[in-house]
Nucleic acid binder design. Structure first.
Lengths: 168, 168
DNA sequence: ATAAACTTTCATTAAATATTGAAAGTTTAA
DNA sequence: TTAAACTTTCAATATTTAATGAAAGTTTAT
């Protein structure tokens, strides 16, 4: 396979994977493009390479900055803004985990804890089932949360290396 | 908080979480409903409780069966089909991990391995960056894949318990 | 102060995704 | 064999989500 086709396929696959996991397809594609680009790119270049509008490119780049996945670069004597992606995949993984934990896991965890307090008759199967289910999910979610916390602090080798030793 | 409100909130939160992670909102809600229901429910009951159409209920219940999250129950003397959810949350988590790994992670892993073979000039920064990026992602994805494999075989206590001991 | 270079916004439009419900299909019992 | 009970399908519709692009906004150099 030649490089241009490979790039194309990579960008498409990354976009598809993103959309399957609740991340805007275009955002994932822009991220992919910057990941495989040795140089920082301008909004214009992103627009051209992915055939998207200025507005879309602008908003997507901003989103990616909010996710902490890309950064702006300013070049002296130029007014254009260049964007480049963090290239270390373990750092990227941690960043994504951090954001999704904060945006999606933590609010649910908070609600589950509240729902556990629901009052009712322990003899009522409706009540008993609800309470057990919520409590169990809360426990699991708590474990996931703690594990992510660990992952956020960890170095890749430590995290995966130790895990494999343990579970082989 | 009283039970009916708590149920409502739980179903909504589960639906929202699902949609944030690329799972159809209704599917997550139906799953939530069955999770907190002490008895198996009929399609009619699901339709009524969540205010959805027959077609929608039917397809959603089928999807949930394909995900291995719910099962049919037949009662002697009755023609109706009853549906109930697996209640053990660790089993649910493993089942979801298993399906998403198979449906979404593995195809990407396969493509990445192909893309790593791309031919080109090692002096070309475009080529070098592409190759490095793809190789790195492939390694990480491989680690994630192996970890999920481990998780699929593991008991919850073993999995999280050991992880905490290790990473405290 | 002005205008060129560049970025951002947001109402409109388009695309993707989910839902409906009536009709067709299937199963069971008499 | 037929009809009632129940399930499935799918074309049409509605909803949600994303993208466009022209206009407004901002910054910088002169």
């Amino acid at each position: 396979m030649e490089l241009p086709e490979a790039k194309q396929r990579f960008i498409e696959a990354w976009g598809k994977l993103g959309s399957e996991w609740g991340i805007n397809r275009t955002m994932a594609q822009v991220h992919a493009l910057l990941l495989i680009s040795p140089e920082a790119l301008t909004t214009e270049q992103v627009m051209e390479q992915l055939q998207i509008s200025r507005g879309n490119a602008n908003m997507t780049l901003r989103d990616l900055m909010n996710w902490g996945l890309i950064e702006k670069q300013h070049r002296s004597g130029e007014r254009k803004e260049y964007f480049f992606a963090e290239k270390d995949v373990w750092t990227i993984a941690r960043q994504v985990a951090k954001e999704r934990k904060r945006r999606e896991l933590e609010p649910v965890l908070k609600l589950l804890t509240q729902l556990q307090e629901v009052q009712g008759d322990a003899q009522d199967p409706e009540y008993a089932t609800f309470k057990t289910t919520v409590t169990d999910i809360n426990k699991l979610a708590g474990n996931v949360d703690k594990t992510l916390e660990t992952m956020l602090k960890a170095e890749e080798n430590w995290f995966f290396g130790s895990m494999f030793k343990l579970f082989k």
